[in-house]
Nucleic acid binder design. Structure first.
Lengths: 341, 341
DNA sequence: CTGTTAGCGCCTTCAA
DNA sequence: TTGAAGGCGCTAACAG
């Protein structure tokens, strides 16, 4: 690395000298323009443009005890759900002057706690955390955090602060209901990873199947492995080995659903005639499969964008009017034909 | 937000007092342990653990003119390629004390330049940038950046600094060659987005098809829309409308390939007998489709992990031994049966 | 509305 | 190997 270029750093004082005012006035012009008279503001702005001044975030953070960094705590970077959320976050953050720092806690509650502690030491402007199932310690840390906190991807009656998500339980109920109403009588459940939100989906499936009198624990197949198309095929195989007369599956997500569909194809099982499949998330792929599969559409992008919007407003002290807990809906995308249709 | 908890910030001085040494000694214990005697080191470490000291990054950055932030510039957050790279980056960064700041320049060279300028002002510890096709200005900025720079996802003879990627051109040549060797005689190309790396794949396809005497510009269908499964189907439709006797397609990526496969199914076209399909990237899904499709596997995770490793070592001044330009291979994953097989 | 003063927590430089 | 002094660039708290 023989690259060595000295950036002639332009500071507040340089701008102040150029504009003929004091440094603090320049600072205010940037942070709170309304506190500065229009004439001065114009002069300062001209000096800023002329010199190409860019504020030093480190100095600002040190002096003000606050950063412009939003911490984003996610359990995994491997799944497509997260990338949609991230996209929403970044779309909203654009031009806000905020930046994101991602922490991947790998589904480990203790790692989540540690990341949280580290983040909090850096005086984040805000925090976005996935889920509502933090440890007691993490919950306490978040509760007393000196910045707004948004819980995402789920809903609960006891939010820490802000919240935006949807009900995994309700989504699973809807999907299961759909299968039953389409005429399937022996629905099963395929689940991988089985994190708390997957558990909620299983609970929704179970409740609905029981309510309809079609629940059979032998038709519930789960694994703690991460989800994948391949695993979906395997789980279906396991299910059919264990309960061959199963005529429908509610899948924890669309990767599993696609895998189940491909496996059914391979086995010559007619979908949807002999096997109904309902997925979860409604990935783009799902509506192009043959047959396209029904799926519960989840507002992943909206969760990311909404979380960042809540945070941006809270940071700007324009706390959202009304309840800052947003429950987004899920939408059943019906695609499979009716059973034996 | 009535949450107001004052963190009793633990500083270097607190640790110093606890350990009975001066603040600077604590600082050195953390940054350069070898400069401190073993006995003192142990005492200081004990004090750090006892008080739960976490260094203040802002103060550190201000005083030292350097941060522990690595800037990561990507053209998009929407595609799955990026999430694999990100996963690699985060796996390696763990425990290094570095953190990542993502900049999404949305395939806009001017936005890339601006992000670069903003990043550089914040004294990044390093920079990872996607591609080799920066504007002249961006190239100059990177060339003179006061930190290591890694270009990723592509290879070239004129790296700015460090580099890790693979040849999109060669990958496309391999895929095209495969189709031809399997007996297909009228191969086409489907491409979306058509960013520089997509263009390189098209160039590879074109060169190989021409070399084999089977190139026909009417069989090249591209769009600047983002890639998706749906677009893959559309592109195949367009191709077949324009050149109905096309008997194979090399697809710019696996999303398009899956879409093409589904569209072929819908039209009753037998794959692979009447239409050969080769994708690019080898997403997990591709080996579970029916029929599974051949794809050019790209080391996306390895690029992310490798880039972060190069950077980590360069930052620690243990510059990699030998060439810091790494060309990773791609691997053709043959899955379709032979034509008319 | 504008300026002065002081200091955020750490690291660089120099001295011991 | 350890310490003392000073300042990085900015902003909080006052004053005018």
């Amino acid at each position: 690395m023989e690259k060595k270029y000295i950036y002639k750093r332009v500071t507040l004082n340089d701008v102040a000298a150029e504009a003929g005012v004091s440094a603090i006035t320049v600072s205010r012009t940037i942070r709170a323009p309304t506190m500065v008279s229009a004439g001065v503001r114009k002069k300062v702005q001209a000096a800023i443009d002329l010199l190409g001044y860019v504020p030093d975030q480190a100095a600002s953070a040190l002096a003000s005890e606050r950063t412009n960094v939003v911490g984003l705590l996610v359990p995994s970077l491997a799944n497509s759900v997260f990338s949609d959320v991230l996209r929403g976050v970044y779309d909203v953050i654009e031009g806000s002057g905020l930046s994101v720092q991602i922490g991947n806690f790998r589904y480990s509650p203790s790692k989540e706690e540690n990341l949280l502690r580290t983040f909090l030491r850096q005086r984040p402007a805000g925090l976005i955390v996935a889920g509502i199932d933090q440890t007691e310690a993490a919950h306490a840390l978040l509760k007393s955090a000196p910045c707004p906190v948004v819980q995402i991807m789920d809903v609960s009656d006891a939010p820490i602060d802000l919240m935006i998500g949807f009900s995994h339980y309700d989504g699973a109920v809807e999907g299961t209901q759909h299968l039953i109403e389409e005429g399937y009588e022996r629905p099963g459940f395929l689940g991988a990873r089985m994190d708390p939100r997957s558990q909620a989906r299983l609970a929704g499936f179970t409740a609905e199947a029981q309510a309809r009198g079609v629940y059979d624990p032998n038709r519930v197949i789960t694994t703690t492995h991460p989800s994948s198309v391949g695993i979906g095929g395997q789980l279906l195989s396991d299910l059919l080995a264990q309960a061959p007369d199963t005529d429908a599956v509610f899948c924890n997500n669309d990767d599993l659903a696609a895998g189940a569909l491909f496996e059914a194809e391979r086995r010559g099982i007619n979908v949807p005639r002999d096997l109904g499949i309902c997925g979860f998330n409604d990935l783009e792929m799902s509506r192009h499969l043959n047959p396209a599969i029904t799926s519960v559409a989840t507002p992943r992008y909206e969760v990311g964008a909404g979380a960042m919007t809540l945070l941006r407003d809270a940071i700007a002290d324009r706390a959202a009017i009304g309840t800052p807990q947003i429950r987004l809906g899920v939408q059943l995308m019906k695609r499979g034909s009716t059973k034996r249709g």
